[in-house]
Computed example of a mutant assay.
Amino acid sequence: MTISDDDKVILDGPAIEAEGLADWRVLLGVLHARFETGGFNAGVTLVQAIGAAADEMDHHPDVDLSYPRVDVRLSSHDVGGVTRRDVVLARAISEMASRLGATPAPSGTSALELALDTHDPAEIAPFWAAVLGYDLAGADEGTDLVDPFGRGPTIWFQRCEEHPAPHQRWHLDLRVPPEVVEERIAAARAAGGALVRDAEAPRFWVLADAQGNQVCLTTWQGRTHA
C-alpha cells in the first residue's frame, strides 16, 4: 500500500463521524470496535481474516481475542491519530465480520483514563512514566502518558492549586514480574520519587512521587495465590 500525504492527515471527530462507520467508535484518538463471535474458533477465524487484510494494506490494528468476542483498535501510530488508512481498514474489517456472522457491539467499547491533580505536571510525570514503564511525551503541558504496549489506561495530569501531600482515597497497584522490581524502583527514584516502605516485600513496595502520590509495585511472591 502506497501512503500518500492525505493518508497522514489526522481526522477529527466530525470527519470520522461523517464516514458512517456504524460498527466503530472513536475514543481518545483511536477507533474501537467489538464483534461478538459466539465462540472461540469463530473469533480465531475473524482474527486471521483481519491479519490477512492488515498485511495486504501494510497497516496493522491492535486485536484482542477472547471468548466470545474480538476487540479491535485502529490508529496511525506514525502520526498519533485516526487517518484515512484507519477508515479504509475499519470498513474492510466490518465487511469481514459481517460475512463471518459476527455481531458488532459498539456500545461495549470504552477507553479508560486516570487523571492525577497536580500543580506541576513536569515535576511528577517522569516518576509515573518510570514506575509504570510508560512513554513520556509532553507531560509538562498536561498531556498524556501512554502505555507503549496499548494495554494500560492513559495517565494525564490536571492542573490544580498547590496542596500538601494528599491523603489518597485510591492508589495504583501495579503487578510486575519479580525480576523487574529493582529496575523499576531505581528508575522511579531517579525520576524524583521515593521508596516509602518495603517491609512487606516481596509482596509489595510502596513508592511516592515528589508530591506524595503513592503507588504499589506488587509481585506474586510471598502470597498464597499468584
Score class of each variant (00 low, 15 high):
H77Q: 08
D62H: 12
F204T: 02
G81S: 10
V131E: 01
A125I: 04
Y134N: 09
A54H: 07
I16T: 10
S4L: 10
W220D: 15
T118N: 01
S107A: 13
G101W: 09
A186L: 01
M96P: 00
I50L: 01
S98K: 14
P106V: 12
E179A: 12
D64W: 06
E17C: 02
P121E: 09
R203E: 15
D135F: 01
L89N: 04
Q168A: 14
R197Q: 12
G20T: 14
R184T: 04
M96N: 09
V180M: 08
F157P: 00
A186N: 08
G108L: 14
I50S: 00
D7Q: 08
T118P: 04
T218M: 14
H32R: 05
A187M: 01
M57K: 08
S76L: 06
W128C: 08
T118I: 05
S94H: 08
T154H: 03
T118Q: 05
H119A: 13
D140S: 15
P68A: 10
A49M: 00
G133N: 09
G38M: 06
D23L: 05
H225T: 09
W205D: 11
I93K: 07
A49D: 04
T103L: 12
S66P: 00
E161Q: 06
V215Y: 02
E141H: 10
V63L: 04
D78F: 08
E182M: 13
I185C: 07
A22P: 08
G192Q: 05
V176G: 02
S66G: 11
A92E: 15
G39Q: 11
P177W: 02
E183H: 10
C216R: 13
G43L: 07
G81F: 07
Y67I: 03
A90W: 07
A194R: 14
A111G: 13
G150H: 05
Y134W: 09
L74C: 04
D140A: 15
Q158I: 02
L21D: 12
D147C: 03
T2M: 07
L172S: 07
A122W: 03
D117A: 08
I50V: 13
L145P: 08
D86E: 15
S4T: 15
R34L: 12
H167N: 04
